[in-house]
């Protein structure tokens, strides 16, 4: 099985590191992975995105135009990537700052208000792990225990004391994700 996804939002939201943790998690379950950041003359506060592919087979192109899953964390990314989700695919988004909600009728849509939740529990840094939790709830391709292993692998030792908080955030994401629309 192959899962081709894009995670897109603002720089600083933890988009790239969330992709990295997901890639490491898939590695923990012996899958092939690729992680391809949007790469160019980006500036601070600008948009950031990363294409992640998790597969049981050798991965062909690391550069994609359409995705099984799009995780969208700001309006610019919604405008750019809603149309790139394959029919029957998944769009997961954070409602914060979204003025135009997804309109596609041929894809599965889920919403996780991770920005609000992170602010409520007073831990803005683990925002991306709430989103990751939501993703894990919808898709069962990556096992939770492998995500914890992935976290250990991808975080430098000096941050390992934060792993329990990250786990808690993932669980919050699992709980608060809401289904907006399903097509299959």
């Amino acid at each position: 099985m192959t899962e081709e996804l894009i995670i897109a939002g603002f720089g600083g939201q933890g988009v790239l590191s969330m992709g990295k943790i997901l890639a490491y998690s898939a590695m923990m379950q012996d899958q092939e992975v690729s992680w391809m950041p949007s790469y160019g003359p980006e500036m601070r506060g600008g948009t950031a995105n990363v294409t992640v592919i998790l597969s049981d087979e050798r991965i062909s192109s690391p550069i994609l135009n359409t995705f099984d899953t799009a995780i969208i964390l700001n309006q610019q990314s919604m405008d750019k990537f809603e149309k790139s989700v394959k029919p029957g695919g998944l769009l997961l988004y954070d409602g914060n700052g979204i003025t135009r909600h997804p309109e596609r009728e041929d894809i599965n849509i889920y919403r996780v208000d991770a920005t609000d939740e992170a602010a409520r529990i007073g831990m803005a840094k683990i925002f991306n792990m709430i989103v990751l939790g939501a993703y894990l709830k919808i898709k069962d391709n990556v096992k939770l225990e492998n995500v914890v292993l992935g976290l250990k692998k991808s975080l430098p030792n000096r941050y390992h004391h934060m792993i329990p908080d990250n786990e808690k955030a993932i669980h919050r994401g699992l709980e608060i994700v809401r289904q907006i629309q399903t097509v299959n």
């Binding site: 890639a23 590695m27 092939e32 992975v33 690729s34 992680w35 391809m36 950041p37 790469y39 690391p62």
Partner: peptide, 10 residues
């Protein structure tokens, strides 16, 4: 090239 240099894989 820049793509292979910048991307991460196993």
């Amino acid at each position: 090239d820049g793509a292979i240099g910048q991307m991460m894989e196993k």
